[in-house]
């Protein structure tokens, strides 16, 4: 039992090391990828624009739930006016980056992993190698960069729509005073809170994109292999995002 645990821990550490090496390979190729901006724009469209609907819808619902729960809780202390602050801080610092990252892993991450995995399974990556084209430069780096650029933007949109959703419930339905909803939010959410959200979404963007392209690139060239890589992408991303979230939160509270 203990040896099994130790060996699986060893494997995990090995995989993290492998991923870091892969990240270095990608970063080395990034400058050359930047000379072909169209490839990156395509990926921003694929990972970003195509994820917009799910991000906006989820943001709206999360914001509305936050509005309801927040209102219920704050009413007990007679401070319903603080709903704007509570919703904004919760969304900007935590829910925005974290939920966006989880949705990103499910929507864009799986698409990236299965696309690259299928390219491996159908010899497209080997064909590129044979044409003296490095697949990491041509396929992986633009997709990685596209994800890294997209994630913070999606998180910002999520938070924005979420705040609107909280406002919708709090102000329109529960009749919290609109003036205090917005002014309290303006007064108590400072740049540090926004920065925390930006840092988180940036880090999650790197993590989720890296995991997706790594799993896809290293998948077994079979149908099962691609399926397993897609599953691993979601599972690993979720765990890593929640772990990193704790670390960054602790860092900002220091």
């Amino acid at each position: 039992m203990i040896t099994e645990l130790a060996s699986s821990l060893g494997e995990s550490i090995e995989r993290v090391g492998d991923m870091c090496r892969f990240l270095v390979r990608i970063v080395v190729q990034l400058p050359r990828s930047l000379t072909r901006p169209q490839l990156i724009v395509d990926q921003i469209y694929n990972t970003g624009a195509l994820s917009l609907v799910i991000i906006m819808l989820s943001g709206l619902f999360v914001g509305m739930v936050l509005g309801l729960q927040g209102f219920e809780l704050l009413r007990r202390f007679g401070s319903e006016e603080a709903l704007g602050t509570a919703a904004a801080i919760g969304l900007v610092k935590e829910l925005g980056p974290v939920v966006t990252a989880l949705l990103f892993a499910g929507r864009a991450g799986t698409a990236l992993a299965s696309e690259i995995g299928l390219m491996r399974a159908t010899d497209q990556l080997s064909a590129m190698e044979m044409m003296a084209v490095d697949p990491v430069r041509r396929v992986v780096a633009p997709r990685f960069l596209g994800g890294v650029i997209t994630m913070p933007l999606l998180a910002a949109i999520f938070s924005l729509i979420g705040i609107y959703g909280a406002q919708l419930v709090g102000v329109q339905m529960m009749h919290v005073d609109s003036g205090s909803f917005w002014s309290q939010m303006q007064a108590s959410v400072d740049l540090r809170d926004v920065n925390e959200g930006i840092v988180k979404s940036g880090v999650f963007g790197v993590a989720c994109s890296l995991i997706a392209v790594y799993e896809g690139y290293h998948s077994e060239p079979t149908a099962e292999g691609v399926g397993a890589a897609t599953t691993r992408t979601v599972v690993t991303s979720a765990v890593v995002v929640l772990f990193l979230d704790y670390l960054i939160t602790a860092f900002f509270l220091k």
Binding site: M119, A127, E129, A132
Partner: peptide, 19 residues
């Protein structure tokens, strides 16, 4: 190796076209 491969062409079993 990449320089050498520019002098080679290879046809894969299934064509391996970029889809």
């Amino acid at each position: 190796l990449f320089d050498l491969r520019r002098r080679m062409g290879m046809l894969f079993q299934n064509g391996a076209l970029l889809t």
